[in-house]
Amino acid sequence: MPILLALSIWTQPATAITEEQRVVVEAWRIVNRAYLDDTFNHQNWSAVRQQALKQPLDNPESAYTTVEKMLASLNEPFTRFLRPEQYRSLQVNTSGELTGVGLQIALNSKTGQLEVVAPIAGSPAEKAGIQSRDRILKIDGIPTTQLTLDEAAAKMRGPAGSKVLLIVERDGSPKEIQVARDRIAVNPVVAQLQTSPSGAEIGYIRLIQFNANATAEVAHAIANLEKQGADAYILDLRNNPGGLLQSGIEIARLWLDEGTIVYTVNRQGIQGNFEAFGSALTHDPLVVLVDRGTASASEILAGALQDNRRAKIVGEKTFGKGLIQSLFELSDGSGMAVTVAKYETPNHRDIHKQGIVPDLNVATDRLSRDQIATAADPQYLAAVELLDNTSTIAKSDK
């Protein structure tokens, strides 16, 4: 009998975990293992788990709400939960084509407000006059304080031709702006050869975002401009909100023979690094244009070129988004974007909330698309003057 009793106790099944509980536990474990801040915003993360599992979890929405509350306690806007449809949408956002208003957005970590990083060039939002650092207060009458970052983005997407009503605040003045959604084909590069007042041939390259096509397009632009006899280059990263980290690293390699491009630092303080190797496509003088809408991968590229003394930076201090997120898929098809590390420039400057400070600070008012890189563009003119003053602009090296 004792043996039978022991056998009965051993085979008694443990309490089954529900699918909703599984999602909550998976989310908790991912943060516990990978999140950048090992103090978890100065709270007992195990206690957060215990409290979460005390909640009634009887349907997927209850699990999702519980996970969102857990992540909200970290008080860090880039770590966020993604419902299945949001997770699928985020996975395709860098494919090169969007349907919506064409805004890159973020939550300001100090104010909690929804803020414009940059409008996509040629997008309905840019044509409507929306600018970097504008605050979006309402979307179709719904206060953005009631929306997550992904919910706000989803509300601005929609069929081409449909309209969305935004309440946008700039300098303390709210303004109602109606924007018609459209299909936005993102061609990441604009390139042309221009002649400076001194007669130098300047290759102008404007990079709009770091999508899957960006590296090949920039390389193609440099090769064509070299064939046309470019003496120097202007790389325009203004209102470039970033995109794929790998594209930023690869584009830095197009300009650098050697040197560190960026360091990544995780919560253990372990530094990863990405290096330049091989031969740059050109060694001609280079100026990089930046502004308040230059963010993330754009800041990595600008910082790499500045710290390696490959380029002078002209314009305004950049946005200051220097955190790295990784995507994690949960068992039910939902997902999470979790901040796992931060960027540092080759000289170990922390980009986050600091931005890249230009070598030459030049302010400008909002420009129309037709005014960019013309006599109406003071930042562009300053870059041209800087290149003209660079000793014989490397003509002797041609």
Results as ranks from 00 to 15, higher is better:
7 L>A: 15
18 T>K: 08
24 V>G: 11
28 W>I: 05
37 D>A: 06
39 T>V: 09
43 Q>R: 11
45 W>P: 11
56 P>W: 14
80 R>D: 06
102 G>R: 04
102 G>N: 07
105 I>N: 00
110 K>P: 00
116 V>Q: 07
116 V>S: 09
120 I>N: 06
122 G>A: 09
123 S>P: 01
126 E>S: 12
137 L>Q: 15
143 P>H: 10
147 L>Y: 02
154 A>M: 14
161 G>N: 10
162 S>N: 15
162 S>E: 15
164 V>N: 12
164 V>S: 14
166 L>Y: 08
166 L>R: 09
177 I>C: 12
179 V>P: 04
192 Q>P: 00
206 R>P: 00
208 I>N: 13
209 Q>D: 05
218 V>C: 02
220 H>V: 05
229 G>I: 07
232 A>H: 03
234 I>E: 06
236 D>Y: 02
236 D>L: 03
241 P>Y: 05
243 G>M: 10
245 L>T: 10
248 G>A: 11
251 I>F: 02
252 A>E: 09
258 E>K: 08
260 T>L: 01
260 T>R: 04
260 T>E: 04
263 Y>I: 00
267 R>C: 01
275 E>W: 01
276 A>K: 02
280 A>V: 03
280 A>I: 01
284 D>R: 14
290 V>F: 02
312 K>G: 09
320 G>W: 00
322 G>C: 08
326 S>N: 12
326 S>I: 00
328 F>D: 01
329 E>K: 13
331 S>I: 00
335 G>T: 05
338 V>F: 07
342 K>F: 09
343 Y>L: 11
354 Q>R: 00
355 G>N: 02
357 V>I: 09
358 P>T: 02
361 N>Q: 12
362 V>M: 11
371 Q>L: 09
379 Q>Y: 03
379 Q>L: 07
386 L>D: 08
392 T>C: 11
392 T>D: 12
396 S>Y: 14
